[in-house]
Design a protein around this nucleic acid. Structure first.
Ligand SMILES: NC(=O)c1ccc[n+]([C@@H]2O[C@H](COP(=O)([O-])OP(=O)(O)OC[C@H]3O[C@@H](n4cnc5c(N)ncnc54)[C@H](O)[C@@H]3O)[C@@H](O)[C@H]2O)c1
Ligand SMILES: NC(=O)c1ccc[n+]([C@@H]2O[C@H](COP(=O)([O-])OP(=O)(O)OC[C@H]3O[C@@H](n4cnc5c(N)ncnc54)[C@H](O)[C@@H]3O)[C@@H](O)[C@H]2O)c1
Lengths: 243, 243
DNA sequence: AGCCGCTTGTGAACGTTCGCACAAAGTCAA
DNA sequence: TTGACTTTGTGCGAACGTTCACAAGCGGCT
């Protein structure tokens, strides 16, 4: 082994699987399910990479973090890979999710089939509005946010989804954390403050649109200006392009 | 097996502002709006970084890509920074957006105030279902997807949002590209294939949940293992935004 | 004016991610 | 068994991103 350095390096901050890889595993899993449904038994890294929209070397390196499950000259067994990735992502168990905020977005989320088709179960719908509490929705009854402790205890909830307005999100977040939720998915456009042991991920539509806007205006500038737009970050203070 | 490396390969060209920075500019912008609403005139990198949930050195480096707009010993003028970032993101113009797929999610998106409050305008709602076409929704009428060419031409639409089922997404995407849309936000859980000049961003709820699942199961494993309490969580935490 | 404390802007070190290129390891046919 | 062929798994350098640390610059105070 020439892994002295690698071992020392890994020991410094060993997380096992790189973040970038973890973020892609669900994409591979989805692609594999598609292939499995089409009856395909094995798949090469080249083919799977194409379906998943990534480079094949990257795919192989990603999978190598999970172990060595391929067969050289053949490829990967689709079923084995599905199991392996599911295992790595912790999808062998069914996670219970509490959805807080049953407004416009919350209604859509509550009925989203993609929750159940992956290993997630909506354990409860919660809202603060008395008019909403008691509403029947997709076989569930909306309960009051004050019932959160009971709901979490009953359902072994460890994941919370926040779909409230931004000004309520931190309060809801604090309540979730207080009752033991350690993973939060936040749809509200705000930064949440949580303890170190709690993971937060956010989905923000308007951030995505603004990123598209950046590229779009860059493209528009390129079509009208033939010269390359180059910024050397030196002492020149060149104002950005206008519309 | 035609075009797989399309997107990743094309973005090798130097763009001036790093991708990671562009992705954070909207967060800074939101934080700045909050501060401005609270009447604050200037802000230090330390304070703004705290509100935005990032490291202050990172914030300063990000802003330095836009030019030198701070005053040493004082900080940044909030209004100037809002203008500068808005300019950089191309938000000085109002982008027209076409929303395709007015189902559960589409209904929520159509009514989303966050569209308009940033510089985006929903120019049209489109669906393929004859029963949905003609429906009035938030002051707009749902039109048939076949009217897309007319809709795009009328409204100067350059951004498309796809909220159809996954099996229709590629077809809708192709139609959007065919009529000149060059930025697409995709909510369907699938990989879209587009020409090099088209940008695609995706929002995928179930990927986010699966990433949370990974960390959650990692945490569960740690509580039963006595050794090696290394830091696992790597998230954005720190302060929240104001009222 | 001169000093002092504060904050920006950035060089440099470090960490992470990417993708090429290729040896190793397998299949398959004869 | 051998050899042709296919595909994995990974070493490596480059590109990208993050963080530290501090000189340079600014405002205010004496
Ligand atoms: N609608 C969209 O398409 C969309 C898209 C992206 C992001 N978002 C964000 O998602 C969030 C919800 O959006 P929406 O359109 O559903 O808003 P909404 O106003 O329709 O729904 C919000 C719901 O949260 C409930 N609520 C308020 N305070 C609460 C509290 N303290 N505890 C529990 N519930 C509480 C309200 O009673 C309401 O039912 C917002 O932050 C919005 O910015 C919405
Ligand atoms: N509902 C959610 O909370 C949620 C969350 C995340 C992702 N998604 C994804 O968003 C997409 C939409 O979800 P939904 O729950 O709104 O589904 P939905 O079935 O309620 O709505 C889909 C809409 O798309 C329309 N449509 C179908 N084919 C079309 C075509 N070729 N052209 C134009 N319109 C077409 C349908 O008529 C329907 O109105 C799905 O891909 C889903 O996986 C939904």
């Amino acid at each position: 082994m020439s892994d002295e350095r690698a071992a020392a390096n890994a020991r410094t901050r060993n997380r096992g699987i790189p973040d970038a890889t973890v973020a892609r595993l669900p994409i591979y899993l989805r692609a594999l399910h598609t292939l499995a449904d089409a009856g395909q038994r094995t798949v090469s890294s080249e083919e799977l990479a194409t379906v998943a929209g990534v480079n094949s070397a990257k795919l192989r390196k990603d999978l190598s973090h999970l172990g060595s499950y391929g067969t050289r000259g053949v490829g990967y067994d689709v079923a084995v890979l599905v199991d392996t990735i599911s295992q790595a992502l912790g999808l062998t168990q069914r996670w219970a999710v509490a959805l807080v905020g049953v407004g416009n977005l919350g209604h859509a989320l509550a009925g989203y089939a993609g929750f159940a088709s992956r290993g997630f179960r909506i354990a409860a719908l919660l809202d603060a509005d008395p008019d909403r509490v008691g509403e029947r929705l997709h076989g569930m009854v909306v309960r009051h946010i004050d019932e959160l402790p009971a709901v979490v205890a009953e359902g072994s909830v460890s994941i919370g989804v926040i779909a409230t307005p931004a000004n309520a999100a931190q309060d809801v977040c604090d309540r979730l954390v207080a009752v033991g939720v350690t993973s939060i998915l936040n749809f509200a456009p705000c930064v949440l403050s949580v303890p170190d042991n709690v993971d937060v991920r956010k989905v923000d539509l308007s951030i995505e649109l603004q990123i598209l806007s950046f590229h779009e205006s860059r493209k528009a500038a390129l079509t009208s200006l033939p010269s390359a737009l180059s910024d050397d970050g030196e002492d020149e203070y060149d104002e950005a392009v206008g519309p």
